[in-house]
């Protein structure tokens, strides 16, 4: 919580208002607010609005959560329904 100097960024790619996308947005919000409050800057990208980004960021599955920073890039696909697994995946680097 004190290391705000090092930027941490999560991007969630969704496609339209599908149930899976909505579930993923809700789950991510819950996780970042309840478990990682203030640690991550979160951005939600709707690829329906901006399909070019899919190629740019090599997105295949929807929804995909990308932890862009810190490196290395981690990707989590799915609706993020398992909170504990999401946290494990985001913390593999021993943070």
């Amino acid at each position: 919580m004190t290391d705000t100097a090092s930027p941490k960024k999560l991007i969630l790619y969704v496609a339209g208002q599908t149930p899976k996308s909505l579930a993923a947005i809700a789950n991510l919000r819950k996780i970042t607010e309840e478990r990682l409050a203030g640690q991550y800057e979160v951005e939600v990208v709707d690829l329906r609005q901006n399909p070019k980004l899919a190629k740019e960021h090599s997105i295949v599955a929807i929804p995909t959560l990308v932890r862009e920073l810190p490196v290395p890039i981690r990707k989590i696909i799915g609706d993020l329904s398992d909170v504990e697994k999401v946290l494990v995946s985001l913390k593999v680097q021993g943070e």
Binding site: Y13, A15, T18, K20, A23, A24, N27, L47, R48, P51, K52, A54, K55, S58, I59, V60, A61, I62, P63, T64, P72, I73, R74, K75, I76, I77, G78, D79, L80, S81, D82, K85, V86, S89
Partner: peptide
Amino acid sequence: MEHIAIDPSEVAEIGDFDLEGIFLRLELA
């Protein structure tokens, strides 16, 4: 050309998903 590459080592699957990304990219191309 559309290169769709997935490195399983940097991807974790958590919960339900689909491949809408491929559809979007293909449609755009």
